[in-house]
Amino acid sequence: MTFLTKLAIAASLATALTSTAMAADLVVGFSQIGSESGWRAAETSVTKLEAEKRGIDLKFADAQQKQENQIKAIRGFIAQGVNAILVAPVVATGWEDVLSEAKEANIPVILLDRGVDAPQDLYLTSVASDQVKEGHVAGQWLVDTVKDKDCKVVELQGTVGSTPAINRKKGFEDAIAGHANISIIRSQTGDFTRAKGKEVMEGFIKAENGGKDICAVYAHNDDMAVGAIQALKDAGLKPGTSPLVVSIDGVPDIFAAMVAGEANATVELTPNMAGPALDALDAYLKNGTMPAKFIITESKLYTPADNPQGEYDSRKGLGY
């Protein structure tokens, strides 16, 4: 068998191996917000695994929670001539120029888990949860739990200007509207981080009679809730009993807190945004199929009745 024959066979085999997936030389840029939470780390891990599974060369850029770093990374991807760009935008505004540049370069952009305030024709699709619904599910859980009891709530907001912070606040407020016994007495950003959540909660405790006047803590993500739980314990309070703790994401540590009786409810946000995103990209690149502009993932409520130890164990392997 000649060298050229061997080479032809090898080429045919390589073609066969990639025929059921995207081309192995497909290059996709991924501008990630950073690693401010366990959920964010899991999203990064799952995205890398999805790209590897499909034979995609994923160019990863960590923005360290700074929009200017994301814009720089996206412009770098455009200059490299990548085939597509995934971006989890740190805030909602300020994207029109760079997204227009990507469009002019014929590079499709897919948004992951957060939206932007920009014309919809500047991105191919947005894969995210219904963030208003997430907040509403959390608020409805509190309404159903406290019933007619007077309940003063402190709120740990996400990053100022981010779509999850805006929408999760709106959904929660919509759920408790009309229930005069439930009120948000303090609300401040914890920037989606555990350390800042703890710091802000310490301030709430000092401002509210050592925390004794707080009926419930609502955190826009689990990491802030875990930080708040530590602050409450340090102050001699009993999170999970007084006050109640409800948050969003479904990361392993919030299930560990449930096992310990220190958290009451979480609304799951799947870290697998890349799977639906890359499915949509595959169809678009292969035959021009336009995906739905918004691909919505499920928002499921979990409480201590839902086997939190099992949930903790199953999620630890996802890269959290």
Rank of each mutant, 00 (worst) to 15 (best):
A105E: 00
G197W: 10
G139Q: 04
D144F: 12
I182R: 07
V154E: 00
V91P: 02
N106Q: 13
H136A: 12
G178L: 05
K147D: 09
D174P: 12
L122K: 08
G161E: 02
N181H: 10
A180R: 13
I78E: 00
R114F: 13
G161R: 04
L156G: 00
G115I: 11
V98M: 03
I78D: 01
K152F: 09
H136D: 09
S126V: 07
E134K: 11
N181Q: 07
R114K: 12
H136F: 14
H179R: 09
T189R: 05
R168Q: 01
D113A: 05
D191V: 12
P164L: 14
P164T: 06
A79R: 09
S187G: 12
A175Y: 08
Y123T: 05
T189G: 06
E96I: 12
R114W: 14
P89G: 05
I166D: 13
T189Y: 07
I78P: 02
S162E: 00
Q157V: 07
A84Q: 04
T93D: 14
A118D: 01
E155C: 15
T125K: 03
G178Y: 09
D130T: 08
A138Y: 07
V109N: 07
S162R: 01
A118G: 03
I176V: 04
A92P: 02
V87S: 04
P164Y: 13
S129N: 14
D148N: 03
E96D: 11
G139M: 01
D121I: 05
Q131M: 11
D113E: 06
K103N: 09
L99I: 04
E96N: 11
A79K: 12
T125D: 04
D150I: 06
D121P: 08
H179T: 06
A175D: 03
A195T: 11
E155Q: 15
D148H: 05
W95H: 05
G115Y: 12
K170Y: 14
A84D: 02
R168Y: 03
T189K: 08
T93K: 15
E96M: 12
V87I: 03
V87D: 01
G158M: 06
E101P: 04
A177V: 04
E101S: 03
V153T: 01
F172D: 00
N181V: 05
D150G: 13
D97E: 08
V160H: 14
R168E: 00
V127L: 07
G178A: 08
K170M: 12
S126P: 14
R168H: 01
F77Q: 03
T193K: 10
K103A: 10
L142K: 10
A84L: 02
E173Q: 07
W141Q: 04
I85A: 02
Q80N: 06
G190F: 10
V143E: 03
K103M: 14
D97N: 09
K198I: 09
K103F: 14
S129A: 15
V98P: 03
K198E: 08
A128P: 15
D97V: 14
V154A: 00
A195S: 13
V82C: 01
L111P: 08
V87M: 02
